[in-house]
Design a protein around this nucleic acid. Structure first.
Ligand code: FES
Ligand code: FES
Lengths: 143, 143
DNA sequence: TTTAAAATATGACAAAAATCATATTTAGGA
DNA sequence: TCCTAAATATGATTTTTGTCATATTTTAAA
């Protein structure tokens, strides 16, 4: 469903959402460890996110990554788009040219309803929203 | 969601379901062409499916692949299991050790309901079932 | 019984995804 | 100003996935 890279990126962003602030930045190694992701690889992912303004960063001593208030308004779909590109979810399950309801493949009706509900929540819930759920203890961040 | 290999395998099996019989076997090249899959690659996939008794085959002249009545009772999940292995769908979206409702990751509640509905239909609908839908013109097999 | 048509087995090769390594740039603090 | 701590840029390596090629086995039909 998600690429490994996306999973890592999502975990990292949610971790930052909960633990970082404008003036409390966290460096790669202190993110990589708790979310259990190879540090050098995560660094690359975070750099890509930063380049696309999904997360913020500061170089040098006392530097690190963090989420600004603006960053917090992004969605997980934004994260996925940066890491995996845009059309991972807009294609037919069997790679039919154009997935549509008029000429559905055998899996379309099976998958499409639940799929669109899921995608909708991915692209409508803000990061902030997720971090609130985590803080309330409704959901949990994995090791 | 599905690997490329699974997509190919599913397309081929559904093609066989509609076009083959016990005594009308179809050879690889006549499957590969219409479903638009590299022939040599498809051959490998079909051989794997045949080895696991998901589809049937006969060697030699007039030979080829086909679905027996028994084969028709299998599910697409069976196909996927042979090609991609078993635990592609039984894992947490964020690769949490054990995906459960007690300690859900942030995506669990978002995805889990729709996901289980989808998986259920994959493992409960028989191939036969799908081919009926295709024959009725309710759904379509892609090129 | 020979021939040719098919699947099967096996492995080489290519492309993509994931991982690791290292040199460069920026900025805080002594 | 200089040193050091951090991100950044770049690219090499490894692993997985997808693709291609070829020799072997089976079997129908002449
Ligand atoms: S047509 Fe295949 S998923 Fe929509
Ligand atoms: S805990 Fe992550 S999907 Fe269930």
């Amino acid at each position: 469903m998600f690429s490994n890279s996306s999973k890592y990126a999502i975990k990292a962003v949610l971790f930052l959402a909960v633990h970082s602030h404008e003036n409390h930045r966290i460096m790669v190694k202190d993110i990589a460890k708790p979310i259990n992701v190879p540090q050098a690889y995560l660094a690359k992912l975070l750099q890509a996110l930063s380049r696309h303004n999904i997360i913020s960063s500061k170089k040098g001593p006392k530097g690190g990554f963090y989420l600004s208030e603006e960053n917090n308004q992004h969605t997980l779909m934004d994260v996925i788009s940066v890491i995996d590109g845009d059309d991972r979810f807009n294609t037919c399950l069997l790679s039919l040219e154009k997935c549509n309801a008029n000429k559905p493949c055998p899996l379309h009706d099976l998958a499409s309803p639940s799929r669109s509900i899921f995608l909708k929540s991915l692209s409508e819930n803000t990061i902030k929203n997720f971090s609130r759920q985590i803080e309330k203890g409704e959901v949990f961040l994995p090791l």
